[in-house]
Amino acid sequence: MKLHEYQAKGVFADAGLPVPDSTLASTPDEVVAAADDIGYPVAIKAQVQVGGRGKAGGIELVDDAEEARAAAERIIGMDLKGLHVDRVLVEEAVDFVNELYVGVTMDRNEGKPVAMVSTQGGVNIEEVAAETPEAIAREHVDPAFGLQPYQARRAVYDAGVDREVAGDVASVLTTLYDLWAEKDATEIEVNPVMITSDGEVVCADAVMNIDDDALFRHPDLADMEDEAAEDDLEAKANEYGFDYVRLSGNVGIIGNGAGLVMTTLDLVDYYGGAPANFLDIGGGAKAERVANALDMVFADENVDSVVFNIFGGITRGDEVAKGINEALESFDEIPKKVVVRLAGTNAAEGMEILNTDLVTVESTLEDAVQRAVEYSEEEQ
């Protein structure tokens, strides 16, 4: 479960982390009232779970009520990277002189959590990791003992953080790790941690993702789940019981089994396409479930083509074919081009059942992915 920024900042504040004064608002009037109460200047920040909000026009700094209202009218209701903005966080602006990155996640290669610090905050940390990995100081943590004070200090010093604020930044890192462990988080980060001219350390952003399987241990976080759902598609995925992640591309992907779906995503990328989603319908999927999956992917306006990758074990190819037919035959006009690859249990029967007037059938996964990528490019 991904928390919204305002939700994560509430958790951070309860843990004693320094966060700016802020108020959630959903109308221009509420934005102006909140800004007047906080005091100008303020930042108005779209509450959607995507990176690069500022570059996309989802964050604005304003100096008075007139600017606040105008910014609210622009941001509330906007489409931000395919997501509808219905709420903004009105937040005290921070006059900073430096930006840092601080975070904790699981390093699966090492089998340990890793605490990270970088002086290149305020930018996409994935780009930093790919282009200048040496700019990120890392400390692997033994979960039996937790992040030790000397480790936090070493990460901060290795990153090159100014000694005047090093102690406070190390404290932020330690608190983040404690939250990561206590709340069963999969990822927790602040990007950026802002340093003011007075040497104050401020957590100006907040990312916190929670392991869904651990929510039963955290009823306070579980209560946030409905509001944390990013959009109608995520809500629909929860309703259908799908494992679903929305991505930024335009090739819709449906498969049965997480490994099969991940392989399909990798192939879409390999052949020059961009995945629009991860959607695992699970084993033993019946026709209705397959139809629901297609309904979900068709509902994503970013999707230009769909690749259906099914390898039958428990899942039967003929049931999948029935579901695809039922879903597509309900449309007067098929909204997206669909490519199907069936293999495994009852695949031959499924191929006979499929209405090839409605779908393109390919015998191999590679061919199916390439065809779906071609279709997506035709729609550009």
Rank of each mutant, 00 (worst) to 15 (best):
V117Y: 00
T315A: 07
G111D: 01
G284W: 10
M351E: 14
A93N: 11
L100R: 02
L267T: 01
A321L: 12
N250M: 05
L247Q: 07
A291G: 10
V62K: 04
A228P: 02
S171K: 14
D280K: 06
T27Q: 01
S197C: 01
A144N: 12
A228Y: 08
A135S: 15
Q120I: 12
D64F: 07
V251A: 04
G284C: 11
F278A: 08
L61R: 10
N256I: 04
S171V: 03
D198Q: 14
A206S: 03
G272C: 07
A274N: 15
K322M: 14
A368Q: 06
T196C: 06
E378Q: 15
V290R: 01
L24W: 01
V114H: 09
A166L: 03
D280E: 08
K236E: 13
P192G: 05
I76G: 02
D357A: 14
Q148G: 03
Q120L: 13
P219T: 09
E374Q: 13
V50C: 07
E239M: 08
D223T: 14
D21W: 04
I314T: 14
V303F: 06
Y240M: 00
E378N: 11
L89V: 01
K45F: 05
L83P: 00
E67H: 09
F12T: 07
D212F: 07
I324R: 12
V42M: 12
A43H: 03
D198E: 15
V307G: 04
G344T: 11
N302L: 06
V193G: 02
G199I: 11
A159H: 05
G283S: 12
N346C: 09
A170S: 13
D14N: 09
N109W: 13
E182G: 09
Y101K: 05
I125C: 14
V31W: 06
V193S: 04
A93P: 01
E326W: 02
A293P: 04
T356W: 06
F278P: 15
D300L: 09
V161N: 00
G344F: 08
F12A: 02
E366N: 11
A343R: 11
R108F: 02
V340C: 02
G249S: 00
P20Q: 13
L179Q: 08
V123E: 14
E187A: 06
H140I: 05
N302V: 00
I210E: 02
G257V: 10
N209A: 15
L279Y: 10
T364Q: 00
R289M: 03
V201K: 09
L24A: 06
E30Q: 14
A70Y: 00
L247H: 07
G199W: 03
D226A: 15
L221C: 02
F216E: 12
Y157E: 15
F311H: 02
V117C: 09
E366H: 09
V340R: 10
D220T: 13
R341W: 03
L179M: 15
R87E: 15
I76Q: 04
D178W: 08
N346A: 10
V338W: 05
V303Y: 07
D232N: 15
H84D: 13
G257L: 11
Q148S: 13
G103M: 04
A71Y: 06
G77W: 01
M224G: 03
A33Y: 00
